[in-house]
Design a protein around this nucleic acid. Structure first.
Lengths: 135, 135
DNA sequence: AATAAAACCTCTAGTAACTAGAGATGCAAG
DNA sequence: CTTGCATCTCTAGTTACTAGAGGTTTTATT
């Protein structure tokens, strides 16, 4: 019944996750360890493929490894209510929004700083001045 | 002429940079190494104070260590034109804007995903579905 | 069957920018 | 003289991988 068997390179091609990264995921237990062929190569099944896809989608959305681990364990419990998943996703969204806000403040500060610079020498540069004095 | 002498804790208090971080900056050469007192404690002067302030302002604005290093070396050449400084600042601003854009795309994707979820069990959760299938 | 190339293996170390901890010493006050 | 804080050095941990060395296995070609 184990008709589908992917070697690591095949799995990499199908998921878009790099070969060393797949091995790394195995090491840290994010992906269950693969079986091994006679020569010692890892052999993955379709469950690995699905799980790795899931992981990749999560990582693309910026979820941390820790979050991914939680999402995976929730996703496995098909009968449980999805409240936990929802909470994780919303929590992550909040963090993303906070990061955006922080970066926008940064953007503003940088713009102000750059606008103050009229060219000339470093001595009279408003950017250097701003960095020295702070605001 | 070395009237001003700060111990590392004093410098930390005045700059808002943590004690281990100051030691770390010394190690990596971002801050010149301090003189040492009889018992081996680091002793910093006012030039260290200024430099560390500069570094802190840079880091608060999200400049990388590499950028800070460059900014510092430019800031030291008071007669040179400030074009390089300007270029560094603008380059950094661009990177910040790119990061904001990427995060906003992420925000949208997360919102879409979360909006699809109607509650219920994990089996029918659109978030889990989206993470499994992608998009 | 021999050989060459691609894919795979393990292990170590490096990235950015610190942070945390262990265990030893110095320094000022009561 | 002892208590306690500040400091010292050194090592290792964080996040999420990535790069490289040096060796084996599998696959393809001759």
């Amino acid at each position: 019944m184990r008709q589908q068997c992917y070697r690591i390179g095949e799995l990499a091609k199908r998921t878009g996750v790099g070969v060393p990264t797949i091995r790394y995921y195995g090491e840290i237990g994010l992906l269950p360890e693969a079986g091994r062929g006679p020569g010692g190569q890892r052999l993955y099944g379709s469950s690995h493929l699905r799980r790795l896809m899931f992981i990749r989608h999560c990582r693309k959305l910026g979820f941390s490894q820790e979050d991914v681990r939680a999402l995976l364990s929730h996703a496995d419990q098909t009968n449980a209510p999805c409240k936990q998943v929802d909470r994780l996703a919303r929590g992550h969204l909040t963090k993303v929004r906070e990061k955006i806000a922080a970066l926008q403040a940064l953007e503003q500060a940088l713009e102000d700083m750059i606008d103050g610079c009229q060219g000339g020498s470093v001595e009279e540069c408003q950017i250097v001045e701003a960095l020295t004095v702070g605001e």
